[in-house]
Design a protein around this nucleic acid. Structure first.
Lengths: 197, 197, 197, 197
DNA sequence: GATGAATGAGATTTCATTCAT
DNA sequence: AATGAATGAAATCTCATTCAT
């Protein structure tokens, strides 16, 4: 009876081990054998479930990125004020650091640097789309300024969030619960109302 | 007879070849032999000038980062209004894309995944410091809001700029002369005055 | 209930699949998994019937070689004129190409190259023996020249036949029904009466 | 001054080592490391001179086959009687066994199972062509029977010679100097005048 | 008998680095 | 300074074989 799910159990073990190992050593530095050891499985089983080392990294991406996208999608559908929606997006992205720092480490360090430019481009594109739509609706509803290109704005918003994650990944920004909450407020305030008084 | 200067000539050739090759193939994927071939020198000469492959990458960083830092430093010293200083920083950073896209490709893609976390952390730290000081002086001069943490603000500003570069690197944002100018205006306006009308 | 015969059914499926796969990809290049897939059975079942991959190849040999040997044996026992017996041996060997080209592909390519030299030596030895006896009886009956070593002669006869098969395997000789019949005549005439007019 | 030729010296060492190792263990069974060890060079140097293991095997082929072809070519050009030319071809081919048995072992065992069918087909084709021309000229000069297809005849002649080599490779035929000379006479007589008295 | 997930030894190949010239 | 042949550690990936179910 456990066969049904044990198929994915080992696969899942490997995937989670990969996140830990890639986070610790970096994708290029870590060896497939390290991932297998961390997962407690034999060397070759990794290749039973994933075609190659890079396919493993891709699986980490696609299977975790999905959760982020869905959460952001729900914010978009909620239909609240644009400013509030942006705050919620920031909350989702930044709190992921507390929930799964290893995952963020991998995403921040490797997602933008995948050998397959297509993969990263697609990944970023998928996050930017909902942010851009939030901005556009905010402009249509006259909540946001209409003179800023929403596409550029979405890149800027995402860059701000990603860089805060980078600060935590690099250990250059404090990342306690309250620090994350503060960052959430600060980034929202800054993006919404600007630096100028 | 020309030995005095040819020392740096070959070294410079290798350094510039490295930028092109790393930009094209990524640091990890490219081989030392590729760099030598691109530079038109023998394989072993690379090791005459650089201790190792990663030392070569570091040299690319430090020797190009320097120019950026100095340019930003000059803005800081100019002592204009904070808003204007931020605009100039944006101009410096974003126009580098037009001047040397390969260099930006390398910096954007590799700076954050250098095996030596220290190197990247330092590099980012050096850019953030002047930005943070600009913000702090702006707050002291009552030009900028005083309720935003200047450290977080500097990360956000830098993240916005870096992500625009990323958009160009990935080919997902238009990057003609006017597009870059528009991005410059948009990022300054957004960061200074906010999205909300 | 059908266990008694299904034992050999699956076994037979695997054996026939092995011939097709070895013929297509060569013994060394093909994987046990390929044979299983071609046979439509599970990977592990191959090991239920055959001790190892090389045992599978050996089974292909012995179980098909047998038929050839018996057919040649019947020719030998028929006791006709030596020339006619040689013609019949040629017919048996060459017509096998039309009946089962995949089998010939495997035999021609792998029989002389088995890692176990013993296996191939035995296989060839078994074919050479009846040919040699045919020659010897022909000499004894004064039908054939007595000045040629019958052992060497048997190698030469077999080599001529095998090389024609090789020509077909490599696709370098036409292999229609009439072409095969012509080859049969030509090889018999040449070996019996020689090239010189 | 030794640089000029030492380039090929090491290459040659590797090539000759490959012949010995492939002859002893078979191509598939032997490892690149074995060849390197036998040649007394480092593992990786093999890949400096040859693109891959199979390229190494191919080099063994092409660079030795050439000598055989040239020798046969000289016989063809000599323009003697067809029967004498055939005898000389047999002599060339069979005596190679005495001169370089390892090379013959490799050619006989591996040439026909090269993964690239094209390579072996071409190789055989190159040997058959001169033999076929010898037969055709013999027929034109009325020295040989005109009723045998010269193409088929060339395959048969080559098959006879190759099988004698096989007999020696397998250790099933005596291969002293006199045995080789006898085989030479026997195969020439049989092919020229036939088995029938 | 039948399945296919799991194992792990081992092979090819790559490439940073060294070094004799 | 300059060359590029030579080294050899290490990594990915394959696949015959085993085994729990």
């Amino acid at each position: 009876m456990s066969t049904d799910r044990s198929v994915s159990e080992k696969r899942q073990q490997i995937l989670e081990a990969a996140v830990r190992v890639f986070a610790r050593d970096g994708y290029h530095t870590s060896r497939v054998g390290d991932v297998a050891a961390e997962a407690g499985v034999a060397h070759g089983l990794v290749y039973h479930y994933f075609a190659s080392k890079s396919a493993l990294l891709e699986a980490v991406f696609t299977e975790t990125w999905q959760g982020l996208l869905e959460a952001i999608g729900r914010v978009e559908e909620s239909g609240g004020p644009a400013r509030e929606q942006l705050r919620q997006v920031a909350a989702i992205v930044l709190r992921t650091w507390r929930r799964d720092p290893d995952l963020i480490r991998v995403l921040v360090r490797e997602v933008a640097r995948s050998p397959q430019v297509q993969v990263q481009a697609d990944a970023i594109g998928e996050v930017l789309a909902p942010i851009q739509r939030i901005v556009e609706r905010g402009q249509a509803a006259d909540e946001l300024r209409g003179d800023l290109d929403p596409r550029l704005a979405s890149w800027i918003v995402w860059g701000a969030l990603e860089e805060l994650l980078t600060g935590w990944v690099l250990g250059r920004l404090p990342d306690g619960d309250e620090d994350v909450a503060a960052a959430e407020r600060t980034v929202t305030d800054l993006l919404a109302d600007g630096l100028v008084r």
